[in-house]
Design a protein around this nucleic acid. Structure first.
Lengths: 100, 100
DNA sequence: GCTCTTGTCCAAAATTTATTGAACAATTGG
DNA sequence: CCAATTGTTCAATAAATTTTGGACAAGAGC
C-alpha cells in the first residue's frame, strides 16, 4: 500500500494513470506519453507503476501495451482507484496527452 | 491530490495517519509518535502531513494536539480516506505506537 | 541483410527527501 | 525565578528519487 501511494504521488505518473483511465480496455503504447517526459524517463516511471502493481505492460511487436489494472486494484483497495482517477483526470498533464 | 498521495506514500507518515484514525476525536500529542522516529524528524513528517492538508496541529500549552482531518478529506476525496486507513492500520508500525 | 521504429539498459548527474544534532523558544509547575 | 517538559528551527549530512544521454536489443518492413 505505501508503494502504491508512493507510485501515485508523482505528477507524471498520476497523469499516466489519469490518461490510462480514459481508455481502460484498449490501453496505450509507451510512445503516447512522450509529451510528459523523455523516452528513457518514461521507462523509469512505467517501471515504478508496474512494480507497484498499478499497470501491466505487455509486448506487442516492437511496442508495449500499457494498461491500468483496474480490477486488481479494486479488489485490493475497494473504491480507492475510483477516487484517484476522479482527481487524476483533472490534471493539465492529462489534457496535454489527449491533445496530441 | 498528488501532494496528499506523496504525503501518504511513506511508511512513517502512513503509520501516523493509521494511528490517528484510531483516536479521531481526541487526537494525539507529538510525543506519542516518538517510537517511530526522532523528535526532530517527527516535526518534519508532521509538517508534511499538515501542508498536504491531512492533519491539523493545534498548540495546547507546551504540547501540540495532532488530529486527522477526516471530514475535510472526505469532502475533497470521498471514500479515499476510508480506504487508506483500512490499510494503514495494518502496518506493524501502528502497533508499535499502541503498545507504548 | 539493412533500416526504421519502439523501448530498454546502464552509468552519471541533478534534484528532492529524509535524518541527525545542537541550540533555541514557550509553557508549566514548583 | 528556575527547572523540566515539549517542540521547533537551522544547517549539515545521508539517502533515495528523478532526469539525462549514449549505446544497445528486438521486431517490422523493404
Amino acid at each position: 500500500m505505501p508503494a502504491v501511494l508512493a507510485a501515485l504521488g508523482d505528477e507524471t505518473r498520476l497523469a499516466i494513470v489519469g490518461h490510462l483511465s480514459l481508455c481502460e480496455d484498449v490501453g496505450m503504447v509507451c510512445g503516447q506519453f512522450l509529451d510528459l517526459t523523455s523516452k528513457t524517463n518514461l521507462t523509469y516511471h512505467l517501471a515504478k507503476l508496474r512494480e507497484a502493481g498499478v499497470i501491466t505492460v505487455t509486448p506487442e511487436g516492437t511496442r508495449r501495451r500499457v494498461k491500468l489494472r483496474c480490477a486488481d486494484l479494486d479488489a485490493r483497495f475497494p473504491g480507492f482507484l475510483d477516487t484517484i482517477i476522479a482527481e487524476a483526470v483533472k490534471s493539465p498533464l492529462v489534457a496535454s496527452i489527449s491533445a496530441s
